[in-house]
Design a protein around this nucleic acid. Structure first.
Lengths: 124, 124, 124, 124
DNA sequence: GTGGTCTAGACCACG
DNA sequence: GTGGTCTAGACCACC
């Protein structure tokens, strides 16, 4: 896994784990790898991993069993809500940013369609 | 103008100016307000403004006339390219992020349409 | 280290570091002293050092590991190219300046030889 | 005439006039164009031209006749000396800079010869 | 008036 | 400990 330079690594780890959950690779109640394992896998400082987990802990997405490790919450509703709110955030941001470049909501869909089409053409 | 906390102010100023140009509020060859004026307007330190301008300077979007001020480049092609690349970046990021949440390109357009529709409903 | 008055200090620091690399005193992948150490050594403000490093960073000669420090790029090809282009710049400037004094390329080599010889004589 | 951004314009004008003299386009005792004419020619502020002339005045290269204009000194020896010292400066700087890149005096001549040769090849 | 450089010192984020 | 950002204020060079 590679990290971008302009965003804190612990946030990128957080996003990574969120995605694992959103994609169903980590399911409700499942144990996630130990801090050290994750740190090794991601070639990152242990502190950095811990910081990411702390945040998710305080958001209720993870919970810690002392001496056992960290687990994904069993509150499937919370998981679904979280996923949806992340996606909505993304959409909101996107719409906002495009408007700042003078692209109005009405034009947004067609702009996106064109982009996807062009991108596809390039790789053909 | 208000600044977000998690992004350096000088980058936000840069983005702001880029948008002004993209929207045609600052046109090729036009003088932009002096660093001190901008600093006052944005209630920010002069150095912070200068840093933003320096970056744009080194990217060729602005140029400095000593003792006179900063001006938007007259290279309209560069301006157009820059605008387009900023928009494409935005699109690329968006598509990438959504894919990370398991939303594939095929579904993207409809997801966006739904979002825009729902958002509209809320405000009715 | 002493600084000339007519050139910005941060540029002189940049040049200094470039030379350290060109001379092999700083090698690919090596950590360079922390900004604070450098600032102390050079009896200069931390910000001034940082500005020099930022430039080299954006040129790809250095990269930053958060919380760890700055490192010389491991891209040895880039290093070699950079060194060569610095030297070529120097040569180009020299040739150009001499031509402006009416010394043509044909005479350049002998002019240089005479200069080196005379200079040697003085110190004998 | 075009000016570099990183060097004060008045210095560049000074150098320009020095070269005109060194090349014999302006000879001892000759009147140089009026400040306004020069300013127009070079599309530069009048103040800027004046500043350049002031410096050359104080160095004795030019002298002012009130109400008549500026003239090149008639002291041909001073002119010759000045020219020589400018050239020597250039040489000294060059040797110094190259040494900073690890190119010793012994290698200098051959480095220069190679450069001139390569450059010639490119334009063939 | 314009921008450019530098300082001292503060506070923050990261590992 | 590392670097990054920001401020306030000074001084300079240029037009």
């Amino acid at each position: 896994m590679e990290f971008k330079d302009n965003i804190p690594i612990y946030l990128q780890i957080e996003q990574y784990l969120y995605r694992q959950i959103a994609l169903g690779k980590l399911t409700a109640g499942e144990k996630i790898p130990s801090v050290r394992k994750l740190a090794l896998e991601l070639t990152v400082n242990v502190n950095t991993v811990q910081r990411a987990l702390q945040q998710m802990n305080s958001q209720g997405i993870l919970y810690t069993k002392r001496g056992e490790g960290n687990f994904v919450t069993e509150d499937t509703q919370l998981l679904a809500e979280t996923k949806q709110s992340l996606i909505n955030n993304e959409l909101e941001q996107f719409v906002q940013n495009m408007e700042r470049f003078g692209i109005k909501k009405v034009e947004l869909v067609s702009t996106l369609e064109n982009y996807l089409k062009d991108e596809g053409d390039q790789h053909e």
